[in-house]
């Protein structure tokens, strides 16, 4: 059993499966709660704001019966006076049984885990890792299809800079899946990820257009950000080309649609009530998954 959740790279398939099973077990407490974490305190150290992620952790800890302290941006604490991350972590661990950290610098969560004696969960370290997002993505897939093995999964949008899709591709390579990468040429999946897939013998193919997506079980759409484009017209064209709406959804058959949210225009609101839409459920799955991780790391889940 791992002591911290810092990077999807640290996790073996058995760790992931164990977390997903525990998350399924947490569903029964997800509504009325439990007292298993009574007397425990979670510190949320958010050095950059991410309201959704923080609230999801707060909600999970509350459902477990524990309490939450912390800060949601650095202006409120002494960090701006030049205190090191290590010192902030050493101080906060005196106040709590587990730490969740989000920080703009890459590798910050790893450092925090090395400094702290209490367990640390990475809620995003810059463009590097956000492992609880990946775990809730896997959990959503497993819950919907009862299995991850045997699925064909398309990852669509900004595959070059998207941390979420890199981690997801990495995690999916532990399973028996086929991947389809759908992106404009400028935003293709990085070499490092495709090399890894080759090593793991995970079949993948790359297509440019939404129309070229073969029959898949799932489309994981991600945000296409304006700042990635030098030419604003190019951005507009790209954004429209990958938009899932009433007309393009026909090309995808009954494929389920996931998205890490918030969306901009990648998925039209008219899709929300179709059986394809899985993204709100996906966001909700953050609660049992984070309950599972918090309780496992604190050792209170039995």
């Amino acid at each position: 059993m791992v002591q911290d959740i810092i990077s999807i790279r640290d996790l073996e398939k058995a760790d992931i499966e164990n977390a997903l099973l525990t998350a399924a077990d947490m569903e029964r407490f997800a509504e009325k709660g439990t007292t298993m974490a009574q007397g425990k305190i979670l510190s949320t150290l958010f050095f950059e704001p991410s309201t959704r992620t923080m609230m999801s952790f707060q909600s999970a800890m509350n459902r477990l019966g524990g309490k939450v302290i912390g800060f949601s941006d650095i202006k409120s604490i002494s960090v701006q006076k030049g205190e090191t991350l290590s010192d902030t972590v050493r101080m906060m661990e005196q106040y709590s049984d587990i730490i969740v950290i989000r920080h703009p610098l890459e590798g910050s969560a790893r450092l925090a885990a090395e400094v702290a004696d209490v367990p640390v969960i990475n809620a995003g370290d810059g463009a590097n890792q956000h492992p609880t997002q990946t775990l809730l993505d896997l959990y959503t897939i497993k819950k919907e299809f009862d299995t991850i093995d045997g699925l064909t999964i398309a990852l669509m949008g900004d595959l070059k800079y998207g941390r979420t899709v890199h981690s997801l591709a990495y995690a999916l390579s532990l399973y028996d899946v086929e991947l389809v990468f759908v992106s404009p040429r400028e935003l293709r999946m990085p070499h490092e990820v495709t090399e890894h897939l080759k090593e793991k013998k995970t079949p993948y193919r790359e297509v440019v257009n939404l129309e070229d997506i073969p029959k898949v079980d799932l489309v994981y759409a991600t945000r296409i950000q304006k700042e990635r484009f030098a030419d604003p017209n190019e951005y507009e064209r790209t954004k429209d080309a990958y938009r899932i709406d009433k007309s393009s959804i026909r090309l995808l058959g009954d494929a389920r649609i996931m998205h890490p949210l918030p969306r901009v225009s990648e998925i039209a609101p008219e899709i929300d009530k179709t059986p394809n839409a899985l993204y709100f459920e996906q966001a909700g799955n953050g609660i049992p998954v984070r309950m599972a991780l918090l309780s496992m790391l604190m050792g209170v889940n039995r």
Binding site: S86, H103, E106, G107, L111
Partner: peptide, 14 residues
């Protein structure tokens, strides 16, 4: 030193 400018090791004594 790490060549990544936004690596924590370039901002803290690590």
């Amino acid at each position: 030193p790490c060549s990544n400018p936004v690596c924590i090791t370039n901002h803290e004594p690590v």
